[in-house]
Write a protein that binds this DNA or RNA. Structure first.
Length: 285
DNA sequence: ACAGGATCCTGGGGGC
DNA sequence: TGCCCCCAGGATCCTG
C-alpha cells in the first residue's frame, strides 16, 4: 500500500532509470483503470518525448516530459511502476506499457486492484489537477504551527486528521499509526483536545518515522516493489502496525487493534492513553 | 458544513 | 480440495 515513503522510493528509482530516456510509444492493457487513459492523446508519443524529470507530490507521481506533457500516476493500493527490458515476461494486470529509447526498455504500470490511476496531462492540466486535490504541505514542510491550526479546527480524531491529504500530503494508514505511537498519542484523541506540546511531538514523530521509512525504501507487506525486484525494509521496524497482540517495544503491553475513520488502527493501550471521553464504541482502551 | 460510512477492486487466508 | 466469507485501504461518493 504505497504511501509517501514507498512513492518516494519509486520516484527516486525512476529518476535514475529514466534519465536520458525518451518515451516513444504506449500500449494499453485490456482493462480500464478508474480513470480511462486518454487514448486520443496517445499520438503524443508518435515523436519521442524526452523525460525531463520525475517528481512526487503527496502520493502523486509526475513524469515531466518535453513539450509541455506530463505523465501522472497514482499507485492506489497495489500499483507498480517500473522499468524493465522489453523482452521481460508479460505480467497480468499490466495496464500501460511505455516504450523507451534509446535502448530496448519499457516503463510498465501494473495494478492488480485497479485503484490506481494514470493520465497524460499538459502542464496547465497538471497544475489544475494538483490544485483541485487541495493537497496540504508535504510532511517535511508541515510546521507544528500549521498542524496545530488544522488540529484545533477539526472535530475529527488524530488518525483521520493525519490521513487527510489536505492536512498533509502523503500519509496513509501505516505511517499514521506509527507516527502516533512515536508521539505517544492515542489515535482516537480528538484533534481539538491536543496541547501545544503534543502537537509538536506529533509533528516531530511524523517526520522522524517518514524519514526512517524512506531510508528503508518503504514497507513491503505483500505487494510493494520498486524497480525490478526491490523490496522495502521498514516492515521490519513496525512498532504497532499489524502488531496486534505483540508486546509494545516500549512497555511490553499488548498492542491493540481497533477501527477508526474506517481503517484498522493499531496502538499501545499503555503508551498511548485513551482519551477520557470515549468516541463511540470504536475506541477500546 | 462536516464527519462517517459505503463503495470500488482483487487475491490471500481462515474456517468448515 | 473447494467453497464461502472476510480483510487489506486510497480516493470518492453518499448519507445523516
Amino acid at each position: 500500500m504505497p504511501e509517501l515513503p514507498e512513492v518516494e522510493t519509486v520516484v527516486r528509482t525512476l529518476r535514475r532509470q529514466l534519465r536520458g530516456q525518451s518515451i516513444c510509444g504506449v500500449r494499453l492493457g485490456p482493462r480500464q483503470l478508474r480513470r480511462p487513459w486518454p487514448s486520443h492523446r496517445s499520438s503524443v508519443f508518435d515523436s519521442p518525448r524526452p523525460v525531463l524529470g520525475v517528481s512526487r507530490r503527496g502520493k502523486w507521481i509526475r513524469v515531466h516530459l518535453a513539450d509541455g506533457w506530463n505523465l501522472l500516476f497514482h499507485l492506489g493500493m497495489t500499483g507498480r511502476l517500473w522499468v524493465v527490458e522489453a523482452d521481460a515476461p508479460d505480467q497480468p494486470h499490466t495496464h500501460l506499457v511505455f516504450d523507451l529509447s534509446p535502448g530496448q526498455r519499457q516503463l510498465r504500470f501494473q495494478d492488480v486492484r485497479r485503484f490506481g490511476l494514470a493520465d497524460l496531462l499538459t502542464n496547465e492540466e497538471w497544475q489544475r489537477m494538483i490544485a483541485s486535490e487541495h493537497l496540504g504541505p508535504e510532511p517535511f514542510d508541515l510546521t507544528a504551527e500549521q498542524l496545530w491550526h488544522k488540529a484545533r479546527a477539526s472535530r475529527r480524531c488524530l488518525k483521520a486528521i493525519l490521513m487527510d491529504q489536505s492536512v498533509t500530503a502523503g500519509v496513509g494508514n501505516i505511517y499514521a499509526d506509527e507516527a502516533l505511537f512515536e508521539a505517544r498519542l492515542h489515535p482516537g484523541r480528538l484533534g481539538r483536545t491536543l496541547r501545544r506540546d503534543e502537537v509538536e511531538r506529533l509533528q516531530i514523530a511524523l517526520v522522524t518515522v517518514l524519514r526512517r521509512a524512506i531510508e528503508c525504501h518503504g514497507s513491503t507487506i505483500r505487494t510493494f516493489f520498486y524497480g525490478e525486484n526491490g523490496r522495502g525494509g521498514y516492515q521490519n521496524e513496525f512498532r504497532v502496525y499489524q502488531q496486534t497482540g505483540k508486546p509494545c517495544p516500549r512497555c511490553q503491553a499488548a498492542i491493540r487493534r481497533t477501527v477508526l475513520a474506517g481503517r484498522s488502527t493499531h496502538f499501545c493501550p499503555r503508551c498511548q492513553p485513551a482519551p477520557r471521553r470515549r468516541l463511540g464504541r470504536a475506541i477500546s482502551r
